[in-house]
Nucleic acid binder design. Structure first.
Lengths: 203, 203, 203, 203
DNA sequence: CATGAATGAGAGTTCATTCAT
DNA sequence: AATGAATGAACTCTCATTCAT
């Protein structure tokens, strides 16, 4: 399944909003603004202006500004879980599975549709405690995909370090790329970046 | 030189503030609050209360709130540059030098005095463009220490990936530890964590 | 004529809305909400929800929120004028007529259908000046019923104080019962309450 | 003790604010506005403008708008309790004591300084449940003064009705005067009004 | 130096009202 | 009639900053 096919089926199941609809457009713009300026520095007037409505109209769709942040995170994690699963299915060996996950996460963070993943990582603190609990349940599923592959690699002897620690390090390393990786400058493609990550781990 | 000797000499040179003095106490508390709640969510009243003065009095020491953030960052980077240099001097091989840098940076981020390093990394966006330029000059010196070691390792054949990319990945991975590493829980010490990082890189 | 017969004939004359119809149901709910939370604190969404429609649909029945308040007041005063007239007709002496008015007004204010009377008294300030003029004309008729009886009592020597002042005092005293009189608690019935009022006036 | 002496001693004890000070001026203006337009219709900008400051500055003195309402009520009830006590002390017989209370409450409600008493009565619903509990404790003391006198009159045989009910009726009747009594129009003075109330009760 | 009252711009949110469907 | 998305003005409240004392 292609990336857009995955998106279509999630939309059909009402798990993520159609990016063409009013709600979806808002969440896309919100993700962009939250990543660009941070959640705190983004005002509801910014959000409204980005989709061409008045600030009061926002509250027709979301009860609070924080609910928008939560929606961005929930939909992002749903989409990315599906993307990671697709990446896993497309690979045969555990090494290839890890490469697939790294590549997919790099695409999520740096791709044109994927600013939301950076929001999930870097705006976590702005989410209320109550919402964090909700989103954490979804994150656990997502993280499990990674841990299974890393544990298999460890069992194969291809990985020496602790899978849990490795995943945390990769989370930091991969999401941090959003602050410095610019595909247009220099010749480093996302594929090349993926190779670098694997090489760094001697895999 | 011990960590505290390094601090003393930097204080003597007026490069960092004495943590016992008024300015130093404020910067310490500011670093703690900025890391805990984020720069935006920390009010100048919070800052003032943390050192037992009124908010208006803050402005006798710093012209703006942002100047406090900048001062935290500048002093942090000065201190950490010195700490990294000391780590390098204490090591013989390049592999040991890298281990020393990793260990020192983990200590900076997770140690009791080191919350400021996390601020440097995660509150960068809150710094004005003008201040970013200033701080970047200091960061370049700091980063050069890492790149030199990584390049030597690459030349030795111990490292396959690009030193520049590896450093960026390490920045993300190591600073991200602040969000999950808790020394008290579980047996993982900072030394153990350093070992894990080296093992992950097969070094 | 019974209370419900009076209501029926007013409905037939189009002077008050049928409580079973759409308009009547809305006015009943509006009266309840206005009394419970006050006019200002009651939103048009509250009003709409109370009758099971959307807020936008309200404006097919009333042009403004204030028009709803005015309608509540106008219909209330029409109904209560008729109720007072019936009370007067059922009594022989002036003393009995006064008791009948007191009893009827207490029922209006505290009875199950009568929350609107409290709205008339306590939300007066929320009515626009223009509407106040309109409603005042109806109130004058209503008040005249009271003043006639009180003046007769004065002429009989049963009342020492000024009828106008007495009526104002009674307005305050009787409508204030809505804030404290609870028929279920304690043994005080509306009849008993009426007796207390008459006793207080040594009548 | 004169009315102003009572006020002075309450100010000295920090039980009510000095009407000349910043806080006292605000509370005076707040009482006036709350009575005139109602609590809901009075904006914090109205309040600020009335004392010549910006709306933001209000929050230096009070944390919320509701806290202003509560302060108005608390100080009012403290002042009025003292005024009623003085009225009681100045009278010999129970009949004179009741007259004194009626006169004092009428003065409170209609006098130039006394708009706050009307606020206490008519804006009660706008007070949060938590604040209501606090203020109610003070009100109980106040009401006890009335009940003691009314019970004595009942025991003397001068009053037939139930003291509790009579007090509630008087609360409504006396506070309602704020809506219609205008000392300048017509010859009815506060003393005359007091006489009317006593006459109405055949006392 | 420190205070604390004051500022004023702007924040998130509410809500009566409109209007295309 | 009814819907529900949208409006836009107004709301309470926040907060970095100023300044007379």
């Amino acid at each position: 399944m292609s990336q857009s096919q995955i998106l279509q089926s999630l939309i059909a199941e009402n798990l993520v909003s159609d990016p063409g609809g009013a709600r979806g457009r808002l969440l896309t713009e919100a993700a962009r603004l939250f990543r660009e300026k941070g959640y705190e520095r983004t005002t509801v007037r910014d959000l409204a202006a980005a989709v061409g409505i008045q600030s009061g109209s926002l509250f027709h769709h979301f009860r609070t500004k924080e609910e928008i942040l939560k929606a961005v995170m929930v939909e992002t994690i749903r989409l990315n879980t599906a993307l990671m699963q697709a990446a896993l299915e497309a690979a045969d060996t555990n090494r290839e599975k890890l490469r697939g996950l790294v590549r997919a996460e790099l695409e999520s963070i740096n791709g044109q549709t994927g600013e939301a993943m950076a929001v999930l990582v870097f705006e976590w603190r702005s989410l209320s405690a109550a919402s964090q609990v909700e989103v954490l349940e979804l994150r656990d599923i997502y993280e499990k995909l990674w841990l299974d592959v890393l544990e298999s690699l460890k069992n194969e002897g291809a990985l020496e370090a602790d899978p849990f620690v490795v995943r945390r390090m990769l989370t930091g390393a991969l999401s941090w790329t959003v602050t410095w990786y610019k595909p247009e400058r220099g010749g480093l493609t996302l594929g090349g970046l993926t190779d670098q990550v694997m090489a760094m781990m001697a895999l």
